[in-house]
């Protein structure tokens, strides 16, 4: 989400440098706040490393993570396999590198679905109010009363586990919090002067919703998107732990799930993917936290 904001920035020419301080671009101000937060910066670096591994790893470490390369359950360090091998004799390092892709894709895709459904429902409910709000919020409430993991399990069971179905299942069960947040923001902002102004000059509803209100409601939604990524990755791992996954796509959750029965003999095969998940979610949460602080006006004044 933040990426979408940044590219336009360098293009903006600074014509009169002396004039800057008063109207500093909001994103720049946010970035300065963010950069002051060492934990958040650490998260950003960590996430960059993980994404870099997902993108470049296969080139730097060409291997088929499914190939049997050494004796099963070899401990870390055996014959140059620095993380050891799993119960089949597959290279764990290759699994971690290639598995990062699926894990990140599920995390991002599920978070995207969460955010899109959440914003759509929340925005329409908060903007139109009346029966639209009534109906949408009742639907939201409906999804809130069902235990998310159980519902996701049923969904995955129904459509058989693949990256797509897992992402959809996670998205479908976790959008309600975002919807409530979006609605609250829309309810607040729609009463503000500039929105009333836009309406009075006859702007179309869709324009007001997406171009006037949404950008102003963005900060908390961006933060919630960052957390949604973390939640989705943990969710995928949880489903994998219950063996609801696609064994043809290497992911960290799959590694934990399929190595779990062997954990007493080869602790490393469960521990390393667990650490990988932990670090990724940690990175995303640190970033989310940093954004939260940076975007929170009250803290900004301090």
């Amino acid at each position: 989400m933040t990426d979408q904001v940044e590219p336009s920035a360098p293009a903006a020419p600074k014509l009169e440098p002396d004039f800057v301080p008063e109207v500093e671009k909001p994103w720049l101000q946010t970035w300065r706040m963010f950069a002051k937060n060492r934990a958040a910066l650490f998260g950003l670096v960590l996430l960059s490393v993980i994404v870099g591994m997902a993108v470049l790893g296969p080139t730097l470490y060409p291997a088929d993570p499914y190939d049997i390369v050494w004796a099963p359950q070899s401990p870390p360090g055996t014959e140059g396999f620095i993380l050891g091998t799993d119960y089949l004799g597959r290279d764990l390092l290759a699994g971690i590198i290639y598995g990062s892709r699926a894990t990140l894709i599920v995390g991002a895709a599920a978070a995207l679905i969460t955010i899109v459904i959440g914003i759509l429902v929340g925005a329409l409910a908060g903007y139109y109010r009346g029966w639209v709000e009534e109906l949408l919020m009742r639907i939201t409430e409906f999804f809130q009363v069902l235990p998310p993991l159980l519902l996701a399990m049923v969904l995955v069971l129904l459509f058989s586990p693949t990256l797509v179905t897992i992402s959809i299942a996670i998205g479908v069960v976790s959008w309600t919090a975002t919807a409530r947040l979006a609605r609250a923001e829309f309810l607040r902002i729609r009463e503000l002067e500039y929105v009333k102004g836009a309406r009075s000059i006859g702007a179309r509803n869709s324009r007001i919703i997406w171009l006037v209100i949404l950008p102003n409601a963005a900060p908390p939604l961006i933060v919630s998107a960052a957390f949604a990524v973390g939640i989705a990755i943990l969710f995928e791992a949880g489903l994998s732990f219950l063996e609801l996954n696609d064994p043809n796509i290497m992911s960290w959750g799959y590694m934990i799930g399929s190595n779990r029965p062997y954990v007493l003999e080869s602790w490393w095969a469960v521990t390393f993917p667990g650490i990988a998940i932990f670090l990724t979610v940690l990175a995303v949460s640190l970033i989310g936290d940093g954004l939260n602080d940076a975007l929170n006006p009250r803290l900004r004044q301090r």
Partner: peptide, 20 residues
Amino acid sequence: EYLRPALKKVGIAVRVRNAP
């Protein structure tokens, strides 16, 4: 899962189908 790398050697692409 073993069949995947094993049968790859003779040119058979194995896809393991999970049953939940």
